[in-house]
Design a protein around this nucleic acid. Structure first.
Lengths: 229, 229
DNA sequence: TCATTTTGGTATATTTTTGGACTATTCGAG
DNA sequence: CTCGAATAGTCCAAAAATATACCAAAATGA
């Protein structure tokens, strides 16, 4: 498709091409781009031209030129990706889960299979053995919600839920969350998880979604309760 | 184009290859990668080169090198944003919107401001002038749903909706979608958009959410109708 | 337990690659 | 024509890659 026009490409053009490749992500951070002599051939330009282009890109901060070594990408493609997720506040996260997970329950009823449900109930059992261990419970809980997402067979949803789960596990406020996870709260969660499973097994999408809403409401309450202390 | 040239690969190149394998998930956590001497042969490089690459990856935290034992992956697969989103099917996308957007409406009622609503109604007006121009309508429509997300003030949700919007505009099946966008369908959408706006303005979260569900159901119908032809 | 093998760690001399610098020439638009 | 840009060629020094050898820690198996 990219009919390499054997038109004459100036230094500015080549700089633009490489800049675009970097922004696009085809060339990632730390990647080494081909030697000047090779670039000269592939772009059909003289080495001096390539050199001008690269020098310019270096001044712009897109690449780093190391003598005797090579030219390396020194620019992160697009930071918006991780930023939005990593900078999300606990409340933003809760709202997002509120949007996603009830519907995930409905889809689980539609697309889930027995093996999915078996796995989820296995996780329920594991969580029920963790009433005294908030950390272990939290891990199993994340896995449970991930397994629920898996059962939808929707790659996009699975990915989103997975991302949210990663934030939950990484952040500082996870510790805070563990503080709120007393044995009583864990027992409440466990009951709700079982109820959700039952509703999914009996193919009642709306009931499953509603219990999930309750579940998330419970979680939100303990969250706000924790942030008040 | 991905012709693995048996050209000489530098340490930086090899590091990049392995880094990608890990980010991609082909090499998972705790996996042991082949001995340096084997890697040297498979990559057609000297052992010293491999070693430099691995040392670098260790400093970056991608692998852990244990003397006498081997080199092990020590990094979770990268959240590859684009893959999950770009490979999403139209139906997966619809299901995800079904999960998100009704709740977005509820949050818009809670957190939205007048200026947000003004902007959305401006977009409504723009869409109503596009009954004969599917492409222009589609653009405005994406902007509308994006503006709706903006009004939630939830950075995470905004980002997700934004990503989904990008897919909608890029893909091939967008063309197909344009085929289904006859003047009648567009008029239906416009009515629904106005209804959603009214419900939000009058602070009726559930009503807004329900109309959004209807709206998405309409969209899903025209989608399945299109895929049957 | 103990010997063997495997694997990473280190060192070094040598060759190849790569960017840096300089120059004379060619090309094209104003 | 002139001037700026691109070209083509050369040489240099730094960096990287190679090839080889030997060591020590870990894994393996009898």
């Amino acid at each position: 498709m990219t009919a390499t026009q054997d038109q004459k490409l100036g230094a500015a053009d080549i700089a633009a091409l490489v800049r675009r490749e970097i922004s696009k992500g085809n060339l990632q951070l730390h990647d080494r781009l081909p030697p000047e002599r090779v670039l000269a051939e592939t772009y059909g330009a003289a080495r001096g031209t390539i050199r001008k282009a690269l020098t310019r890109l270096e001044q712009e901060g897109y690449v780093e030129i190391r003598a005797g070594s090579g030219t390396y990408v020194a620019h992160k493609p697009d930071r918006s990706t991780t930023d939005a997720i990593e900078n999300a506040t606990p409340l933003e996260l809760m709202d997002t889960r509120f949007a996603l997970e009830p519907h995930v329950c409905r889809l689980a009823v539609l697309h889930g299979r027995h093996t999915d449900f078996d796995r989820m109930e296995e996780l329920c059992t594991r969580m029920e053995a963790c009433t005294e261990d908030p950390v272990a419970f939290s891990e199993a809980d994340t896995e449970f919600h991930r397994a629920l997402a898996d059962s939808t067979r929707n790659g996009l949803l699975i990915w989103i839920i997975d991302q949210i789960g990663n934030v939950r596990s990484e952040d500082d406020w996870t510790r805070m969350r563990h503080l709120t996870l007393d044995a009583q709260t864990i027992r409440t969660y466990n009951v709700q998880h079982r109820q959700i499973m039952n509703a999914i097994r009996t193919r009642e999408p709306e009931r499953a979604a509603n219990i999930m809403k309750e579940h998330l409401e419970t979680a939100r309450l303990s969250l706000t309760r924790a942030s008040e202390t």
